[in-house]
Amino acid sequence: MSGHSYIKRPNRPLQIYAALFLVVLYVPVLFLPLFSFNTSIYVKFPLTGFTFQWYIELMDREPVWAALMNSLRVGVTTSLISTGFGIFAAKAITRYRLPGKGPLVGFIMLPLVVPGIIFGVALLILISRMGIPLSLYTVTIGHVIVCLPFAIATMIPRFEGFDPSIEEASADLGENAWWTFWRITFPMVFPGILASLLLTFTVSFDEFIMAFFLSGTDPTLPMYIWSQLRFPKEFPSILALASIILVVSFAMVFLGQWINRDAQATDSKSE
């Protein structure tokens, strides 16, 4: 269509701006891995030499491994619970006409917007009033609340993206609700479930504020990093640890988004 031509004309300044934007978005974070391979314990230019020393030192640290295990346990539990609940919630939101749905969805999505400190201290108060000791379990509760909106938002486009008449056909052919779910709905939304598992795991793995208020004596990995930031001589090994976490997080989120890409493509499609 010739009418579109002027819109399609490449806009050179805008292209340069976009490239710069991406550079600024990524470069500060890339300094972490850069300096984690530097021999000096000071984070400054000029670089002094290349080394794996900080990574090797990291391997010998008992607290790092303990914190990693804590984070993995919390992350896996959180992603399973929030994705599990999220599947049902996403189905309810997309498939059923519910009175007061708008406000309810808004309520569920609150943790995306409200400052984390508010929920952190509010949950801390509730938990301490109930006399429950702070532990990895309390951190997990906090993380489920943070992750549920992400899980639901990831799976809603999946449910919107497939025709409910397939489910109806299955029911008409005599399957009960349970088997319809396992044989029709589940395979159709499976990429969304996988994406949600990966994304919520990453969010929980990287989460700091809830962990800050709700963890007991067992630190998660971000809590461990926070506790080490005070010691200047620990800086290089923290850079190494941070770099590993960043690479793993980037990979998992990228994978999650990639698996779920066609759902999002249909969701935001207009042309």
């Binding site: 500060p28 974070v29 990453t202 990093i225 997080s249 988004q257």
Partner: peptide, 17 residues
Amino acid sequence: LPFWTSYLLRVFAWKVV
């Protein structure tokens, strides 16, 4: 992509910068 990764680490990166 960066939005999904650790907020703490992104702030930490700016401290380094």
